[in-house]
Every structure is written in structure tokens, then in C-alpha cells.
Design a protein around this nucleic acid. Structure first.
Lengths: 329, 329
DNA sequence: CTGTTAGCGCGTTCAG
DNA sequence: CTGAACGCGCTAACAG
């Protein structure tokens, strides 16, 4: 294994000089910079990021905290898109990334999690979709031991940023669009879980629309479960003119229920998962660009690690109507 | 951050003694072992794996090489199940895991990949589904710079093990089962890509069945694509009595095509992805236990890292007929 | 602008 | 059976 020492010897300079060139320090003459870079090329040297992380607490490594506990199709897909966006951006930014799956810490305390992260020399983390009742993650964020970017939640603080689309507006728009195309007054709104930022924001958007269009809104919670949405629809869907769902998966459940009931009513979803292309033809949904969101999160994390203050960032989305051709890849 | 030094001080012993206790060395008196363990508890000490990796080349870290390049639903899901199985087992075995997504190395050479892995202090890797024409990964394996377990491919060598289900037998069984239920002689077999171990094995299984049952077999390659399978079925499915597909996704495509043609013929798939539960009712398929496969791979990797010879390991699968209830979770 | 000197946290001889 | 001393590859002051 070729180390920085070999490079230094090969270039005829000191180890620290090589280090400075590698990390783009100022105050290095163009001549030695060239020499060092050439030696790096010739020796095919790649710095050992493990050693670097150990040596400097500053540059730190970043962890992606993914929750793939929920065994539904949709979660898998969203997680994958988040991961790919984050990693791509991290390579661009030259950051060292580690993926951490939260199911590994099911029965652990926040302290244990923190110590684990520290033991991995991690100083920055991106958390995807923290539930408001996930005490461990909540504590992890509040303790501010790490620079932290939270996706799809509301958590900005001095060392914490949050990033999300405008959930409320998006829910408002997709429902409005559907209702303009297929008018109706009695709306069944199938929401997610009761204590999540995402769910609450979407609900607010729907309530705003209800006020504006003078709709009669019935709200039910299906916990993002397809089968639960199906049951709710079977029970309460008969009287509704249309069904608005807070996720695509629930929209699929609702639509299946309607089919079983022999009825055909407008249904709209949220997220833009690819499963919709298979079974959601004709439905409206909000397509989130998960990998872009994740890339933004990584950039934001870098800002934090450079000492900037935490803040809230908003990214865009697309209102979309699905046709079968979407699924042909 | 509490380090091994603190533990040593707290226990009133030398640093190296703590290290030995932690790594289960012999020749440590039960008395000091107790003292040290107690100090570890009291201080909530977690060894810094980064430093450990730096210090000893032996213990090494392990990398999971995942390919989520293919943007189909099925790949996402299989990858997730592989990951979760591997990580769970790794924690059990006390191994340090890193996930590596191969799309990060699209245009890199094998040398660059190797250097990257070395720069991460990685000594063992698990590779999921290497294509036979992926020269970079092939070279990575052949160079034997790392202990390596290959899932769903055939690559055993002195420092390489491979692990998979009996693809040939599984394909044989699922097709046979379907044909026993819905007899027919003219079979359209929709295979995957032309140069993969998995595809070739499954094809062999099908050919064996064809000989035994005196079937008339037509083989087409759909490259694991749903839409390609649909097209093939539209073109050549009319004359067939049944369609056997080398993957669930292709089975879905074939079935959609049959629907469009207004025909109803038996179709069977392979893998047992959850999408099948949505749209594959009544079909036979092979359910692979991805997370179990992955757990075996991790155990095998540990064997290799302990200096054992590489070998080939086979794991089980289940023949299954899908009903709608499968999807209700 | 460059080289020297300390460690980061841990594993590992090798004397005691 | 234990502990002092060295080094892994690298970064970070501090001298020169």
C-alpha cells in the first residue's frame, strides 16, 4: 500500500507538504505543487480516508441514517433514491460517507447511538424522515453532538438544518387539480400517521383547500398502509365524491377498494413512487425528486460542517398525472 | 470522547491489557478481565473502529458492493433485503461494515477501485450479482487482493467463495409445478441477459425440464426488462401454451401482454419480489430469502478472513403460488 | 514557503 | 500474566 510517505519521498519533499497539497492549502508554491501532484499520479496514490478521519476531527465523515424498517415497497424505493442522491453529491464534495440503517439500533438508547457514531469518527449526519415520536433520534438531534440535516421534518437549530418540499402547498395543488377535473364536494382525506411533520403539513394543505372550495372534508388516518387505506375506503368511501390520499401507496389501496365496490371515483396520491406507474394510471400525484432533495441535504451538511448556522431549505416538486407509458423503461 | 486510555486508567491497568481483554486474547487473568470489563461498562466505552482498522490490518472492515444502477422496482427491493441481512449478521459477528454502491465507480478502472477499497482499510467484500461482462468487478475478484464472497455468481477460488440458491433446480421445479397444474407442450421461455451465471443456470434447468417432459421450447432474452418481456410476448406468445420467465418482473410484463391480447395463459416468475403480490396473483414463483442469503455470505466472509479456503455454498428457496392476501401487510 | 514534531485511538511485540 | 514503547497514515501547529 502506497502511503503519503512514499509520495513525499518520491517528490523529494516533506510529508506535511504533500498533505497540504492534497488538501488544497494555500501558501504552497506552484512548483512543489506540480512535483507532488506528479508523484501522486505516478504512484497512483489515494489518501487513506480512515487515517485522515482519525487524525483530524474537523473534516469528519458523514453518515446517512436510513430507516428501512417499514417493509413496504414505497419505503424501499424512496430510500434508494435518497441514498443515490446523497452519495453522488458527497463524492462531488469529496466527503466520506457511511450508510447507517436505523434498524441496527432498534433497542438502543440515544447515548449508545451517539457513542457508536463517535466511535466511527462521524461528525455530520443526514436523517431521513424522523418521526416525532422517535425519541432516540429526536434526542440525537437535540443534543447537537453532530452537525445534522433532517429531511422531511422540522428541526432547524444552530447546528441542525431541515430540508423538504412545501408539503402543504403540494397537497393543496394536487387535490385542487383533481377536483377541477372531476368536481365534487364530499372529500375523504386519508392521512398518514398522527405525529409526523409530513403528515400534518399535508393535512393543513388539504384543510386550506377545503375552506377555499367549501368542501366537506372527512379525515382518516391509515398510517401510510395500503391495506388500512383500503379498509377505510370500504367503510367510508361510499359517500364521498373523491378520495385524496397523503401517499401513493394509500391511494393504491383506496383505488383497489373502490374497484372491489364496483365504483369509480377520482383518487389522488403523493410522492411519485414508481409503483404508481404500474397501478396508478390516470391518477394525479406529487412527484418528489428524492435524489435531488438528498443532494441538497448533503450540500447543506457541508455548510454546517464549515461552521455556518442551521436553517430551513425548501426544494421543488412536480404535479403529475400518470399514464401507462410512464412504467415502460 | 472516552478512549481506551480512559478505560485503562479507570481499571488501573495498562492500555494494552484493555486491548487484549477487548479482543479476547488468552493469557489474561480472570481478575483483571473482570476489572476491565467493569470499567468498560461504567465508562460506556465503545472502541473506535476507525482507529482499530488503522492500527491492525488484520481485523479489517468489510464492504458490501451493491448495484442499484438498474432502476427497476425489483432491484431496489432485492438490494434492500440483501443489505439488511448482511448488516444484521455483521453486527452479530462484530464486524465493521461499509456499503459501497457500484455506480460510484462507473467509469473507474479496477485499479482505482482496489485503491479506493484499500484507502478505506477494507479487507473483505461481498459482491452481489456480478455480471460476467463487468470486467472491473471480475478483475477485482481475480486479483484476490481482498477476501471476497460473491452472491449469485460462480467464482470460488482460494480467497473467494460464492453463494447462491440452486438456480437450475429452482427453475426446473417452478416450471414443472405450473405445467402439472396447467398442462401444455409449447413453452415460451423468457430469459434474462446472455452473460450472467444466474440466467444461464436457470436456462439449463428449463432445458432439462423440456427434455424430460418433451416440451417444445422457444427461448428469448428480455434482459430482465418488463417492457421487453411484454414485447416478446406480444410477438411470440400467441403460439405458446404457457410462458416461463426467469424473473418476476418479466413475468408481469408477459402477463400484461397476454391481457392486452385478450388471452389467458399460465405464466410463472422467479425471485419472489413483493410487487408480485400486487399484480401476480395466481402465478407460481420461486421465493428467494434474500436476507438469509446475505447473512450466509457474511458468515462465509468471516471464514475467509480467518484464513479458510474459498468454497461454494448453496442455500434454500421456496416454491410459491401467489394469492392476493400476500400483499396485505 | 517548507520541514519538524506531536499526537489521533488503537493493536502489537517484547521485555519484565 | 502485565505494561512500556512503537507505529499505522495522516493532519496540525510550530519553527525555520
Amino acid at each position: 500500500m502506497v502511503s503519503i510517505k512514499d509520495v513525499a519521498k518520491h517528490a523529494g519533499v516533506a510529508i506535511s507538504t504533500v498533505s497540504k497539497v492534497l488538501n488544497n492549502y494555500p501558501n504552497i508554491s506552484e512548483a512543489t505543487r506540480k512535483k507532488v501532484n506528479q508523484a501522486v499520479e505516478e504512484l497512483n496514490f489515494v489518501p487513506n480516508s480512515v487515517a485522515a478521519a482519525l487524525s483530524s476531527k474537523r473534516a469528519g465523515r458523514v453518515a446517512l441514517m436510513i430507516d428501512l424498517n417499514v417493509k413496504t415497497q414505497a419505503i424501499d424505493e424512496m430510500a434508494m433514491r435518497y441514498i443515490s442522491g446523497a452519495i453522488t453529491k458527497a463524492m462531488e464534495l469529496n466527503l466520506d460517507v457511511t450508510t447507517i440503517f436505523v434498524f441496527m439500533f432498534q433497542d438502543k438508547t440515544a447515548d449508545e447511538l451517539i457513542r457508536y457514531l463517535q466511535s466511527q469518527s462521524i461528525t455530520g449526519i443526514i436523517i431521513y424522515g424522523v418521526a416525532e415520536d422517535d425519541l432516540v433520534l429526536q434526542e440525537l438531534i437535540l443534543r447537537e453532538k453532530f452537525k445534522c440535516v433532517v429531511v422531511d421534518a422540522d428541526h432547524s437549530g444552530s447546528s441542525t438544518s431541515s430540508i423538504t418540499i412545501d408539503q402543504q402547498q403540494a397537497q393543496y395543488e394536487v387535490a385542487k387539480k383533481m377536483l377541477e377535473e372531476s368536481p365534487g364536494k364530499k372529500i375523504l382525506y386519508i392521512s398518514g400517521d398522527e405525529h409526523s411533520y409530513v403528515t400534518e403539513s399535508r393535512l393543513k394543505g388539504m384543510e386550506r383547500l377545503a375552506r377555499e372550495m367549501q368542501l366537506k372534508l372527512t379525515v382518516e388516518y391509515a398510517n401510510f398502509s395500503e391495506s388500512r387505506a383500503r379498509e377505510i375506503t370500504l367503510q367510508k368511501g361510499a359517500g364521498a365524491d373523491a378520495i385524496v390520499c397523503a401517499s401513493d401507496l394509500m391511494a393504491i389501496g383506496a383505488r383497489n377498494a373502490l374497484k372491489e365496490m364496483g365504483k369509480n371515483k377520482p383518487v389522488c396520491g403523493f410522492d411519485g413512487i414508481s409503483l404508481m406507474a404500474y397501478v396508478g394510471q390516470g391518477m394525479y400525484t406529487i412527484r418528489q425528486n428524492f435524489s435531488e432533495i438528498s443532494a441538497c441535504a448533503m450540500e447543506e451538511l457541508q455548510r454546517l460542517m464549515n461552521g455556518m448556522e442551521g436553517r430551513t431549505v425548501e426544494v421543488g416538486y412536480t404535479l403529475e398525472k400518470l399514464s401507462y407509458t410512464t412504467s415502460i423503461c
